[in-house]
Design a protein around this nucleic acid. Structure first.
Lengths: 205, 205
DNA sequence: ACACGCATCTACCGACTGGTCGGTAGTACC
DNA sequence: GGTACTACCGACCAGTCGGTAGATGCGTGT
């Protein structure tokens, strides 16, 4: 009985998903061809289409698989009964760590948010909305209890979303504006602590 | 001598630029075909290629024209000698108004930041960097003078960038998470005041 | 030994891509 | 009345796209 290794996709299908996630994340849906993916997997395009019936089906599978990971992390990070700023910081740190470990996911989400195709509008929103509402409810509860400074809870969530994801998704732009590699561990740590610092000053009491 | 009307492109070339900006902003470089643009302009593709020698040349022209507008706005908003938070708020409001008026520009920048093609890396960064440095210098000066709370100035700029642009670029995602049209005047005003509110709390003294 | 099913292949399709070619109106200048 | 120029067009090019059809090989169960 072999140990399941985190980074070792055994089946061809898993390998396709892994490669597709990278390619879609790097170049978006329109900018990625099935040949690109198949070549990197080491098979021909028809073989790829044997595992997934169409390009859109593959893209959908990649998107939902990634999103499931994200949902799982949110569940873990929001378990427990912590309150006020400590819980906000806990969530921020968990999100940051997750995004650092899944940079392709961040970029995939950004492509999807930008393109705004039917998948996002009709299906992904339905999955995202509960998480968003839960976060907003938490913030509102804590604001009511006087443990956080009062803002519009939903707007605050979007501000955090933008502050964290923009940095991680816009790599080329960042490396043109900053002096060191924006995705290096040092730069990521700096970014993380800065966002937490700003948010703490803005919302903690 | 005719009055130059802001929204009236007289020549075919200007019309092409206008349509191309919209298409590239909506679907990105790879997701836009020259036929799409030519059809909307009302000419055939060869005629379009008579005005611009290639797709990339057209894209480049669109990008630099938009960027020139943005540079101009920054110049205007930073003229004068205002200090501390009032100047930060002034810049924030100017930027927000500009982005509201040029939604295609916001999305174009986001596509470019995400795709990270050679244009961004080799040329756009050179134009963006001075603006970025100037902003960072201003913030550092004001922090040194004790008129703003101390942060890493460059990180703070990036935080503002993400907070403002993410909302405006990710329209479909926002409309799935918020209840009213995220680009309606009411929603935009709400977003603007929220971002300013958070930033004021975070940096004003 | 044989049949079955899965994974993969080669070969091909129609649609579309960015780009080129030759040609044709209309117009301005000399 | 030439001549030259701009703006446009239809036809065509080679290449790529996503997707399909049919054959081959290979492992397994009977």
């Amino acid at each position: 009985m072999a140990l399941p290794v985190a980074s070792g996709p055994s089946s061809t299908k898993d390998l396709i998903l892994e490669v597709a996630l990278k390619r879609f994340g790097d170049h978006g849906y329109a900018g990625t061809s099935l040949n690109d993916i198949a070549d990197e997997v080491g098979i021909r395009r028809p073989s790829l289409l044997h595992h997934f019936p169409s390009k859109e089906a593959l893209y959908r599978a990649v998107l939902f698989a990634s999103f499931a990971d994200w949902t799982l992390l949110v569940e873990q990070a929001t378990a427990g009964t912590r309150q006020g700023w400590p819980q906000v910081e806990r969530m921020l740190r968990a999100a940051f760590t997750f995004f650092e470990d899944h940079p392709e996911f961040v970029r995939l989400v950004r492509w999807e948010a930008l393109e705004g195709g039917p998948i996002l509008r009709d299906e992904l929103s339905l999955l995202l909305r509960p998480l968003f509402d839960r976060g907003a409810d938490f913030l509102e509860r804590e604001m009511d209890a006087g443990r956080l400074r009062r803002y519009d809870a939903r707007q605050l969530l979007l501000t955090g979303y933008g502050a964290v994801l923009s940095y991680l998704s816009d790599g080329q732009l960042m490396s043109g504006l900053l002096d060191l590699d924006p995705l290096s561990p040092a730069a990521l740590a700096k970014r993380r602590e800065h966002v937490i610092d700003v948010m703490r000053t803005a919302v903690a009491l």
